[in-house]
Design a protein around this nucleic acid. Structure first.
Length: 279
DNA sequence: CTCAGTGTTCAGTG
DNA sequence: TCACTGAACACTGA
């Protein structure tokens, strides 16, 4: 579920269901990993009876602004997401749902909220790499306080982006993945940005020319905005995107234009790139 | 049975 | 201190 566009979709879903409502009922799974050891009782005390003023996102984190603090902060990990009983907003893809997918509350539900108007929202997390935390001021406390710019909320100007890269000795691909640099960029978006910007992912950030750095910034902006505008629905991503063809580490894989896709590891992550295009 | 994986963190190293 | 690497986390699905 987890790069910025999917998290933004989750934020919109949560906002739709929760904003303006009072939390009538709170059910938490017994899961000390996802809840970082915070008890079910503490969660109930913090959320029950609270009104949700708004739902915010920064990077891959979502947090609820409640009428009283602390506020809940959600991170989906690699396999989490928000689900509602109809499931519509979150499963645009899978048309006829089977009984397991239709189950309510769904399998792997970690927190289940019921609102005063009858609406319901669940956060699921299959592999338990997601986290649900309580923070009295999310933006000024970890992990949100350590995030870099969010490409949708506060993307630096072209000039300051160029400056940002010039100061970094890091390799560009892992740098894009570094949440303290750019919050919300994940593995596939980083590859997409470097492909469309025509940059070799192994290059040092500081070695990019001004024009190249500006290309990285504009591709990042365009790709994120596009993915968000189609509600992170992968089928609606433009056909020319590397995204559709990067999976599987297939040695035969080619882009939409027939260019050969190669796979290397950078910063511990699989990196798909196109040597013919990326210099 | 093995292994990669849309993510993050932390210890260890240079 | 900075920057980077690899492992760990947890568990499914190919």
């Amino acid at each position: 579920m987890p790069e910025l566009p999917e998290v933004e979709r989750g934020r919109r879903l949560a906002e739709q269901v929760a904003a303006g409502r009072v939390i009538a009922k709170v059910k938490c799974a017994r899961d000390p990993i996802v809840f970082e050891g915070v008890s079910q009782a503490r969660w109930r005390r913090a959320l029950a009876g609270r009104r949700v003023i708004a739902v915010h996102r920064r990077g891959k984190h979502i947090y609820f602004q409640l009428d009283e603090r602390p506020w809940p902060v959600f991170h989906f990990g690699m396999t989490g997401g928000f689900v509602t009983p109809d499931g519509a907003a979150l499963r645009l893809a899978s048309s006829p749902k089977n009984d397991i997918e239709r189950a309510w509350p769904p399998r792997f539900a970690k927190i289940h909220l019921v609102f005063d108007d009858g609406g319901e929202l669940v956060m699921t997390n299959k592999r338990r790499l997601g986290r649900i935390r309580l923070r009295s001021d999310p933006l000024s406390e970890p992990p949100l306080s350590g995030l870099g710019f969010d490409p949708l909320l506060d993307l630096p100007s072209p000039a300051s982006f160029v400056e940002l890269l010039r100061r970094r000795s890091a390799i560009i691909k892992p740098l894009l993945l570094d949440q303290s640099f750019a919050a919300g960029v994940g593995n596939s978006i980083a590859d997409e940005v470097l492909y469309q910007a025509k940059i070799d992912p192994r290059r040092r950030a500081a070695s990019l020319s001004e024009a190249e750095a500006k290309r990285v910034r504009s591709c990042l902006k365009r790709i994120i905005e596009k993915a968000v505008s189609v509600d992170a629905d992968k089928k609606r991503f433009p056909r020319a995107w590397l995204f559709h063809r990067r999976w599987g580490k297939n040695s035969e894989a080619v882009t939409y234009r027939g260019e050969k896709i190669r796979y290397i590891t950078l910063g511990g992550r699989t990196t798909a790139w196109v040597p013919e295009v990326q210099r």
